[in-house]
């Protein structure tokens, strides 16, 4: 449940999420120069499409968030790109509420950007970079969602703890996947990874 629905999160958490999101969007938009708009948009579209692909894991299936990969390729510009994706998911599919949109954007985009930027430092070893960016971003998102729930009321504490465990399969798939894609990019299209400098 990376997309929190409306009606759960308390007002202080809502405000904090909105502030973080606006800050991140500001940072991202400042780095989104006109010549980068088409590139960032096409990648945002790709991440949206990729999130429609369901990976079977055991009896259930997970869909990728790909935030870490977006962070590695786009840097801070990943923030508005992810925000667009989340807005679309909220209004088209009902994934996540409207009033909590700020919280949801913060929970997914902030770890994506930070872990992505961290992962970039290890691009010489794409597998390590993929594990840090892909697995790390999912882990941080899980933690932030759990903290948002726990701060909204003591009664959510147990549910929040359980929630973190449900992210473990996704963390594994996403780490493997991001590592594979980064390996491919380093080989096939290394210039794509210079974008956010």
């Amino acid at each position: 449940m990376a997309h929190i629905p409306d009606g759960i999160v308390s007002v202080p958490v809502l405000v904090a999420g909105a502030v973080v999101s606006l800050g991140g969007l500001g940072m991202g938009l400042r780095r989104l120069t006109p010549e980068r708009v088409p590139k960032v948009a096409v990648l945002a579209a790709l991440f949206f499409v990729a999130s429609l692909v369901h990976f079977p894991v055991g009896l259930t299936s997970v869909h990728l968030l790909l935030g870490g990969l977006a962070g590695v390729i786009l840097g801070w510009a990943a923030f508005p790109a992810i925000a667009v994706g989340l807005i679309l998911q909220a209004v088209l599919f009902g994934f996540g509420g409207l009033i909590v949109l700020g919280v949801n954007i913060a929970n997914i985009a902030l770890p994506a950007v930070l872990m992505g930027l961290l992962g970039r430092r290890f691009l010489a070893r794409p597998t390590l970079a993929g594990i840090i960016a892909g697995g790390g971003a999912v882990a941080a998102t899980a933690l932030m969602v759990a903290v948002c729930l726990a701060l909204s009321g003591r009664e959510f504490l147990v549910g929040a703890k359980l929630l973190v465990f449900t992210y473990v399969p996704l963390m594994a798939v996403e780490a493997v996947f991001t590592a594979a894609v980064l390996g491919l990019l380093v080989k096939v299209k290394p210039e794509a990874l210079e974008m956010s400098s």
């Binding site: 969007l25 938009l29 989104l32 006109p34 708009v37 088409p38 960032v40 948009a41 096409v42 945002a44 579209a45 790709l46 949206f48 499409v49 429609l52 508005p80 790109a81 925000a83 667009v84 994706g85 807005i87 679309l88």
Partner: peptide, 17 residues
């Protein structure tokens, strides 16, 4: 700029899908 990003993204989701 955000709206341009939004409109572009919407356009290319169709193409990529």
């Amino acid at each position: 700029r955000f709206v341009a990003l939004f409109l572009f993204t919407v356009r290319y989701i169709e193409v990529l899908y």
